[in-house]
Structures are given as C-alpha cells and as structure tokens.
Design a protein around this nucleic acid. Sequence first.
RNA 1: GGACUGGUAGUUCAGCUGGUUAGAAUGCUUCCCUGUCACGGAAGAGGUCGCGGGUUCGAAUCCCGUCCAGUCCGCCA
Length: 614
Amino acid sequence: MLRTHTCGELKKENEGQIVSLCGWVSTTRLLGKSLAFIDLRDRYGITQINFNLLGKFSENDSAEKKQSGWESNLNLINKLGREFVIQVKGEVVERKAKNKNIPTGEIEVEIHSADAITILNESKTPPFTIEDESDGGDELRMKYRYLDLRRTPIKNNLLQRHKVGQAVREYFDKNGFADIETPFLIKSTPEGARDFVVPSRLNPGEFYALPQSPQTFKQLLMVSGFDRYYQVVRCFRDEDLRADRQPEFTQIDCEMSFVEQEDVLHMFEGMVKHVFKKVRNLDLPKFPRMTYADAMKYYGVDKPDTRFEMKIVDLTPNPSPKGEGSENLVRGKGFKVYDDAELIGGICAKDCAEYTRKQLDELTEWVKRPQIGAGGLGYIKYNADGTLKSSFDKFFDEASLKKIAEKFSATTGDLILILAGAETKTRKALGELRLEMGNRLGLRDKNKFECLWVVDFPLLEWNEEEQRWFAMHHPFTSPKKEDMDWMYNGYTEKNSAHAPKANAYDIVINGVEIGGGSIRIHNKELQQQMFKVLGLTKEETEQKFSFILNAFEYGAPPHGGIAFGFDRLCSMVIANEDYIRDYIAFPKNNSGRDVMLDSPSPIDEKQKKELGLK
RNA sequence: GGACUGGUAGUUCAGCUGGUUAGAAUGCUUCCCUGUCACGGAAGAGGUCGCGGGUUCGAAUCCCGUCCAGUCCGCCA
C-alpha cells in the first residue's frame, strides 16, 4: 500500500505517528519563504500538510546543504499544482491553529523536505474548481464528469446511493426475496414507450430491443415458482428526457406470488420505511391511501404533493352524478366565461389577500403560458377588513363572493384563485397553480417527507386520436373483480366514462412518483381478452406475446408487484429533490447525449454492413 | 414536434434604450508574505461577444436564420 491512512481519518490520537497519505492536491497556500500548507484530498476527507520549507538540519550541516535543501523545497511547492496526485510521508502533529470545520482539523502532517513528497502523477489545471460550490456549468461538469465526481456533494450523492441500494437489498434478503437477473437483449413489443433497438449480426435485418422493464420476465419467474423476486436493474426507454428522466435508468423491480394488493402495499411500504430509517434515520408514519379519483379531484394530478393542503375546490354546479358541489355559485351571473366553462375551480392561498396588482398580473401570465394553457385567472381577495374584492366584481355582488369564499373555507386575509375551462385541462392547470403557490409560499418543505399510496387507477383510457383503448399502467394489469364483465361486454363503448378500475397503485413522495405496480393477470383467457380490448389482432398477440400466454397455460400463480424508480428514490431520500442527474455517475444530457464520450456517434460502413444495415 | 430562458476571458457572470480601448469576480503566471485553511498583498497574461446573413456611417447590443445547452408541454404501458 502506498498509504497507511486515508485523508479523512487522522485525529489527535494519531499524534506522533509517522504516516503516509495519498491524494489529490486541493490547494497550496504559501506563506512567505519558509512555510507552506497543502490540502491533500481523497474520497474520505482533507488533511493539511504542513511543509516547513527551511528544512530540518543539524548544526553540523553546511550552509550550502541548507541552501540547496531550501531551494529544492521551494521548487517543489511551486511545482505542485491543483489536482496533482501525491504521496506524502510525515509525522502527525497537533496544529497550532486548529480548524473546527473539518474532522481532521486538530492535526496536520508535518514535513521538512521535498523528499517527503512523491509526485505520483501531474495534472493539468482543471477547467472548473473542484470545490463544494463549483464554478462549473452543467455541460462542462458533464464533459469532465470524472472531475465533477471528485467534488464532495456529488461524491456523497453516489456514496449515499450505494447506501440506499444496500438498504434495499438488505430488506429484500431479510424478507426472502431472490435477486435474479433477466436478459437485456429481448424483444420489441408494442404498447408503452419507444424501444431502444439493437441490430442482430447473426440474424440480418432483425433486431433485439432493450427492456423498458423486466415486466414479463418477472411474471415468468412467478410461473416458475420463485414467489418472491427482486432486481436492481437497468431499464431503457427511448423517450424525451427531463430533469427526472434518463434514457437508461435503474429500477428496483419486484414481484410476489399468492398475494393481494394489500400484501404488496404492506411489503413495499416496509421497504421504503427501511430505506429512510437506514439512510436518514427517519421513522415514517403509515402511508395514507388516496384514490386516483380523489387525487385528480383535490390535487389535479395523480401524484399529489401532500406536504401542504390548499386542495382544489370545485365550483361547477352538478359536477358529478352524486350531486356534490351542486350549489350554483357561479353560473347565471352574466359572466360568460363561467357560464360556459365545463369546470370552474379554484384554490385558497392563505394570507395572500395583500397580493398586489403586479403579483396577480404575473400569476395570470404564468397560468396563461402555453404549458399551463389557462385562459385567464380570476381572484377573490378576502380583505383584512372583511370586504371582498374580485376580478369579476362587475358580475358578482359581495354576498355572492362571500358564499364562494365560504365554500373555500376562506378567512380574512386569504386569496382565492379561480380557473375555468375544459375539464381535464383546467383540473391539471389548477394542480400546477397549486404547486406554484406552494412554491411561492414556501410550503414545499425540504425537511418534510409525505408518502402516500395512490390506488384504484383506471385500467384503461380511451384515446380519441387513435380511437382505441390504452392501458394506463401496462397490459398485464388485472381489472378489479367488479369490472370483469366490462372487459368482455363493456369495452365497445368508446369513452372512458365507465372504464374499469385496476388493482394498480403508485407510491408518491412529496409529489414525485417513486414507484408503481399492480396485481397482474394470471389467466390466459383474460390476458387474451385484454390484448383484444387494446386492439391487437390475434396474429399480433400471437407474434408478440405467445411466450407469456403459453406460460399461463402451465399453472401461473396469482401474482403482483411493483417497480421503483431507483434514481428518483435516491434523489428523494438523499436530498428531497426531483433532479436525478447528480445521483447518477455518468448521466446523459437533455438530448440523450453523453457529452464526455460524445455518444451516440456514427459507426463505420463496415460495421453497418456486418449488421445488415446497408 | 412545441413554448420559454440562456450562449461574452479557462470558469461564473455583468454589459444589450447601437457610439471611446468589451468589464468584474474567480482561476492561471510572476513577485512579496512564518499559522494559513474561501489565506492576504502587488503586477501581468488571457476575448472569433456560439455560428451565418441582414439593417446601419457604426452591431456584443437591433432583425432574420441556424446550432448548442437548460427548464417545461407533448411523449414517458
């Protein structure tokens, strides 16, 4: 070993020891001609080297010897640049001036001669500073990712990610789950995301697909009798990227046999709790359940951020057959927008009645952006003096406004924001507005973790454009028992009004979808019927899915499972954020490029020919 | 496929209602400094203002196009 210790472990107890350290020169500080400090950094920390440039000589040593020793010391310290890799041998001594900010701050390693330092490798000046707060932009940091990974925050993210992974494996092992690998070179299937595809040299003109997830394999493993399976596995989807989406990402893929939905929720809630306990020492309370319908109704999304309330209030008269909200508070006042709107809804922002015209105009512009797409923004200010002021005063008297305010349980000082328009779009816009207000009011607390299960997802959605049904989760999801009849007789209806519900569930933390799963179909006839409902012909079904249909003929057990986005789970557990690139060692940029490798790249003609591509 | 924001020194940014020699900080180089730890002080080098075209006496600045990056929408079973 070139070192006896790491740069993070020397403490006062080590005083007097002769040690050898290896690491990267973080900074050098030269103070005059006789004293220099070197911050030596490795994965474990930083240790200060105290370099006495005058050297250590006995009285008998000649002046020339002292002079040349000093000169070579000075030469060396001037030569040492940032990120040089060096080995240092010296004595651990207590510091005269201690640094309370670092764990090794009580000691330093003292050296007197250039001979104590071996340059193991030189370094060019790095293009950005290797510090906690780097001056480097994203693109540059990605290009020199190996340098970025030297920075403490990113390094810690990866080490914490390792801990999350260990906690996951520990939990599964303890609960009898077997880690079984599944292939990467598989078959392209319709439905779902776009496949990444790999040409086959041995079978010219034919292609493998990379798995979007090991879905069918894990089901086959259930048929094989491995009743508890998991895998931390790479998945591939050729879709556009986002801050929380990479073309290759890691799933914690899980499946269990002989279970019902409740068993699955219980088991994997346990896993998430275990991870939070192990990594952050947090004890999470039991995760609440919310139906998909309620999530959409009160939060405008299927992944509500429940760290704050501000639920959506529906003002549409007779919005549902049950007659909820049937009281007419908005129609027939002469305000055409509300008379015509399919949905009128709003949120109540606590203590925002003081919002200025400028702030409201800004919010209006915000909701009118094409990404949100609202036509406009209505508001009611419940002033501190009890009066009410709205953007539609022309049409509403104060009593009417008061009634609306009551519906929101608003009190003086509150601001009610109202959107109106087509139902789906408006509901979504309200959800976005709610999150935006949550941001502005600082309600999305970084120290808070609110987990919940969203359950009872619709099994299928009618797609108007393609005039066919789409599986909301995936085509292997089983319908709820009470909707079984629909699968055979109801599906000819071409709208989502009576669409069946599924035994499908998502786990959501702070408004981020961390994982999702379902109880699967394990019956061949039902699976065939599902493909039929989805518009696949018999031939397509046979060609694409015969393997799983065949398997179902040989005693498939009832089974269900879940898959977690491991990258998202990590970014959430480690930093409570929704940006995964800093938790992946070598991520890709917005256009799916690896800017370090400059990949993807063209291949040469010979290679293409060999693969049957030309 | 679309919306928005950005692209100026090695780096992060300012300058952008057109007009001297395009600035700051940081990094880099040299010198000074014996307890620093974001060390301090002095000096210096460093620029195809993303690219192409246009308007103009004159463009980093205005216009058009284009490329790249980021965030979002669509998309992501």
